[in-house]
């Protein structure tokens, strides 16, 4: 697995636990099914992350978001874009922890993932071997500005036009 964010590769501080056995891991990543158990055992200074499938309902997930430091959204295939909407919903529900996209994404999706609120991508070796991190970083900045408001910063084209209008008086 290769982990990368908008600055390049990074080391993974998270350890996947078997079921809810989080022991004394500082950063324990558990499956959705094991989450209730894991949260019950959680020590004060322990951090919990959860792996969720991309079809999980936000109605359920939002109830636990405040207790989580990481949500890892599975991308079963790069062509399955549900994760982008799920990320957006998770952010819209106020989640400020780390959002991870996990699966065989392609470099050309990096900018989209970041705009939808993901912080990092966890890539299987087979994809990483073909698409080195330089390609990801190049792809992330290939289109300088998008048109959509509310995706990331306010450097989108509509807000820039608005700013230009305001400056022009």
């Amino acid at each position: 697995m290769l982990l990368l964010d908008r600055t390049g590769t990074k080391t993974d501080v998270w350890t996947r636990s078997e079921g809810a056995a989080i022991d004394n891991l500082s950063h324990a990543l558990v499956d959705w099914e094991a989450l209730p158990d894991a949260l019950r055992q959680k020590a004060r200074d322990q951090r919990i992350g959860v792996s969720v499938p991309n079809h999980i309902g936000i109605a359920e997930l939002k109830l636990v978001l405040r207790q989580l430091s990481l949500v890892s959204v599975a991308f079963p295939a790069f062509s399955d874009g549900r994760g982008f909407s799920l990320a957006k919903l998770i952010r819209n529900h106020g989640f400020t922890g780390t959002l991870r996209a996990s699966g065989p994404l392609i470099a050309d999706q990096f900018a989209y993932a970041l705009s939808c609120g993901f912080d990092e991508i966890e890539l299987p070796e087979t994809s990483a071997a073909r698409q080195p991190v330089e390609q990801w970083l190049a792809a992330a900045s290939r289109i300088s500005h998008g048109y959509q408001r509310g995706y990331g910063d306010n450097h989108n084209i509509l807000d820039q036009r608005r700013a230009a209008r305001a400056a022009a008086g």
């Binding site: 874009g81 989209y112 705009s115 048109y147 509509l158």
Partner: peptide, 13 residues
């Protein structure tokens, strides 16, 4: 047209 162009969320429908 502008809003839908390279939409980050809706490009893998």
């Amino acid at each position: 047209r502008q809003w839908s162009s390279l939409h980050p969320e809706f490009s893998y429908l």
